[in-house]
């Protein structure tokens, strides 16, 4: 078997492979670190039990579904209180309930969302109370 212009093709392939795998070489073989999420806000530090409104594992996996249901229930069904699985009641409000504890949006919400490459549109309308004061 004979390849026409073998030199050019092999060189081209080599350049292509180097370029495609460059992220691996440039990172030096290390895996990238997951974002460091801060939960050391004054309100959370003051809590007796450091627990979100539901179990941490549930909040990590399903907070987006919970918030989506909140918006549906508050806007379209006119209900304003959420009853958590432990029976406690919370006002369904992104700006007031979520951000009351997680007052460090840039170190909590944003860090993980940036890492995961998701861009929720919440903040184009919903107000971040901490940003108003600043």
């Amino acid at each position: 078997m004979r390849i026409y212009d073998a030199g050019k093709i092999v060189t081209g392939l080599a350049i292509f492979i180097v370029l495609m795998t460059s992220p691996f070489w440039l990172s030096g073989g290390k895996s990238s670190f997951p974002p460091e999420i801060k939960i050391d806000t004054p309100v959370i530090e003051g809590l007796a039990e450091k627990r979100c409104i539901e179990a941490t594992a549930y909040m990590k996996a399903k907070h987006m579904e919970l918030i989506d249901r909140w918006r549906q229930v508050v806007v379209r069904e006119g209900e304003s209180l959420y009853v958590a699985s432990d029976g406690k009641q919370y006002r369904m409000s992104l700006s007031h309930t979520c951000l009351n504890c997680h007052s460090n949006k840039d170190q909590f919400c944003d860090r993980c969302h940036n890492y995961a490459g998701v861009k929720p549109a919440c903040w184009s309308c919903h107000v971040v109370p901490q940003e108003l004061k600043g």
């Binding site: 249901r69 229930v73 304003s80 209180l81 009853v83 958590a84 006002r91």
Partner: peptide, 10 residues
């Protein structure tokens, strides 16, 4: 079922 209620003061 979504566990939600109206506020008592509503």
């Amino acid at each position: 079922v979504a566990k939600a209620l109206k506020a008592p003061e509503a």
